[in-house]
Simulated assay, not measured.
Amino acid sequence: MIPRSVPLGVYVPGTTLVHRAPAGGKFLALLVFILASTIFVGTPMLAGACLAAVLVAFAVARIPVRVAVGQVAPVLPVLLVLGAFQWWQRGPEPAATMVLVLLASVAAAALLTLTTTITELMESLERGLSPLERFGLPVDSVTLAISLTIRLIPVQLATVREVLAARKARGAGFSVAAFGTPVLVRSIRRARLLAEALTARGVGD
């Protein structure tokens, strides 16, 4: 049974075509999609088509609507703020294009994590990067960094929700500084503890 709310980075089991696709191929497709949509998409219509393509992929993967919405909902306030700023600077059409492209990219990344286990993804990355090891690339360190980044995304989102909930409980109004400061402090503290834990285990020696 799939939970109603699935944090970003959690795998939802399935046997669909998207689930069975190779992890490396899906990761490469994600990179190509993000780069292509960022570079070549310049109108709201094309940006909407990109988002529609991702939604079709969600349907093919049989991801429940509630789960799909739960993946993108946490970033919507940030996208709206960026869109409003872009509207003020350049107008409504570039703002709509940027918001739709970013939303499509976030949704595509969420689809990857929902249909691919972290183990599969990391093993695929390690195999793909292994030829570069002869040129001095620290493949193990790069793979570990990517793995930690993916795993920490839901933790960071939880921090944002906790800060917002705390401000709402106190009846305080929204302030960028008052919101950003505790999030930044908690993130730095978490990064320091993680670094100490990795150092204690001899990672990077």
Rank of each mutant, 00 (worst) to 15 (best):
T159V: 14
G14Q: 05
A191W: 05
V69Q: 10
T16S: 14
A145D: 12
T15K: 09
L82Y: 13
I63N: 04
T97I: 07
A68Q: 14
A107Q: 05
R170C: 09
G173H: 11
L35R: 08
R66H: 13
L51S: 06
G202L: 10
G83P: 14
G9N: 03
L114D: 02
E162Q: 15
V81L: 12
R201D: 08
V69T: 09
V12C: 05
T159A: 10
A104P: 07
I63E: 02
S37A: 05
G25M: 09
R127E: 11
M122W: 01
T143Y: 01
F135T: 11
W88H: 12
A59F: 06
Q86S: 07
F135S: 11
T117C: 01
Y11S: 01
P94D: 09
S141Q: 13
P182K: 08
A110Y: 02
S147A: 14
I150D: 00
P13I: 07
A177G: 01
P138D: 11
T97E: 03
T16R: 08
V65D: 06
P77Y: 09
L79I: 04
A165E: 13
V101E: 01
T97H: 04
V160D: 02
P74Y: 06
V10G: 00
T116Q: 01
V41C: 12
L46M: 14
A96S: 11
R189G: 04
